[in-house]
């Protein structure tokens, strides 16, 4: 059975259909990419899955419906996410941010009723993302890359099965982007996490994704094997040509 299923999901803001009749399935262990021009509805898809928006259509995790659940319940079921603009808790230190995720993220129970074991030791996680030495720095003093890492590590501290990354590489230097990419490949290969990533950088997507979805005006333009998708003339037209068809 698919890990995550979207069936005819639609989200309207007034007259605008930010996401329009979108359906796809996600297999356990997959790295799934989403690309598309600005305003295509990528972030809205994340907001729908993670319970910040409640549109129409059905969203299922392990065959059970999760649309309609509030965000914290979705987290407790094992879906974590990051945000396009990282906004960690300003009045806390890095490690305190992580602890919030560790403590509150594991409070709930998984779909099969088992209590998920919390992290024993956060220093492993901090080293994994590369924030060692900055644990006790107040978040407000961090640069963008470290803020992104703090948000990612806090999300991971909730012990997710599926992690959704919203433009994890956006705004980073080439070196930082490379580090981030390596990180998320390890998440998939070593930790066995399923990953959905929104990204603009095509090379990153073709390198790390198993499948790629192109969104345009809220609708699925193409879905398939990344290399095939990016060479599709319609996709090139959509991404390189005018912003909107």
């Amino acid at each position: 059975m698919a890990l995550l299923t979207l069936e005819h999901v639609t989200q309207r803001f007034g007259a605008l259909a930010a996401v329009n009749d979108l359906s796809f399935e996600l297999e356990e262990g997959e790295v799934f990419g989403i690309a598309g021009p600005n305003g295509a509805g990528k972030t809205t898809v994340f907001n729908l899955i993670s319970g910040f928006l409640h549109g129409s259509g059905r969203i299922l995790l392990d065959g059970k419906r999760i649309d309609g659940l509030p965000p914290h319940r979705v987290t407790h079921l094992g879906i974590a996410r990051t945000f396009q603009i990282p906004q960690p808790f300003q009045s806390m230190t890095v490690v305190q941010n992580l602890r919030i995720g560790e403590y509150y993220g594991s409070q709930g129970r998984t779909a099969d009723g088992a209590r998920r074991a919390p992290w024993k030791d956060l220093s492993g996680l901090i080293e994994f993302v590369g924030l060692q030495g900055k644990e006790d720095r107040p978040v407000s003093s961090l640069k963008l890359y470290d803020k992104k890492l703090t948000v990612l590590a806090s999300a991971l501290a909730t012990r997710p099965r599926l992690v959704m990354l919203d433009e994890a590489l956006g705004g980073l230097s080439a070196v930082e982007a490379e580090l981030s990419l390596a990180l998320l490949q390890r998440l998939n290969k070593e930790w066995g996490l399923t990953v959905i990533m929104i990204e603009h950088l095509m090379s990153a997507l073709t390198r790390s994704c198993d499948r790629l979805l192109i969104l345009n005006n809220g609708e699925a333009l193409r879905l398939g094997e990344p290399r095939a998708v990016v060479e599709d003339p319609a996709v090139i037209e959509c991404l390189v040509g005018g912003k909107r068809a």
Partner: peptide, 19 residues
């Protein structure tokens, strides 16, 4: 910590499992 988290960054706090 949970309500300071909500105040600091509401969506992030919710996404980490705070109701």
């Amino acid at each position: 910590a949970s309500f300071i988290a909500l105040h600091d960054s509401e969506q992030f706090a919710q996404s980490l499992g705070i109701s």
